[in-house]
Design a protein around this nucleic acid. Structure first.
Length: 154
DNA sequence: GCCAACGTTGGC
DNA sequence: GCCAACGTTGGC
């Protein structure tokens, strides 16, 4: 069992939407490193749900992997914004996983909040210039963020 | 295989 | 809206 952080623009797909849907397929990832991380995911892995490109970027809740990596069919659809003509259906280039809703935090654990924690200093998301939408999270980092969420709720 | 140009991401 | 950082593309 491992842990991950997955970014989404709330205007595109928010934690509130996941709560409503209960589960969703994480389509549209078009970056090899992020794809490779998704291929490592196992059912049951924990996911920190992160809102990017919004007024208060940060971790807003928890999700979990409910289906292992499988071909992202949106790459074959010429009308899809993530269409990739180079992805051959016989040999798909891009994968996605399915994630399920776990919980929404009482508020957003913002970037300054995250940066204030010494235990999180190695988090990839906090590194300058890192744009990866899917990143691994260590056990300690996971525990730290969950604790921050509990303290915020208290 | 190098690298300049370009497009995208995402915090601010 | 700005712009730094990064990944990808394509000419050579």
């Amino acid at each position: 069992m491992t842990y991950w952080l997955m970014k989404s623009e709330p205007g595109c797909y928010s934690i509130a939407q996941l709560k409503k849907d209960r589960r969703t397929c994480w389509d549209g990832v078009r970056n090899y490193q992020a794809r490779n991380f998704m291929r490592e995911m196992q059912v049951g892995d924990g996911v920190l749900f992160y809102h990017s490109n919004c007024s208060v970027p940060g971790v807003v809740g928890l999700a979990k992997v409910v289906k292992r990596a499988y071909p992202d069919h949106t790459a074959f659809d010429a009308k899809d914004p993530h269409f990739d003509p180079k992805s051959d259906p016989a040999n798909p280039r891009w994968d996605m996983v399915d994630i399920g809703y776990v919980e929404s935090f009482a508020g957003t654990i913002s970037l300054p909040d995250l940066r204030a924690q010494a235990a999180l200093s190695d988090m990839l998301i906090l590194r300058k210039g890192n744009r990866l939408s899917v990143t691994p999270i260590s056990d300690d980092e996971w525990q730290c963020v969950v604790l921050m969420a509990r303290e915020m709720a208290a």
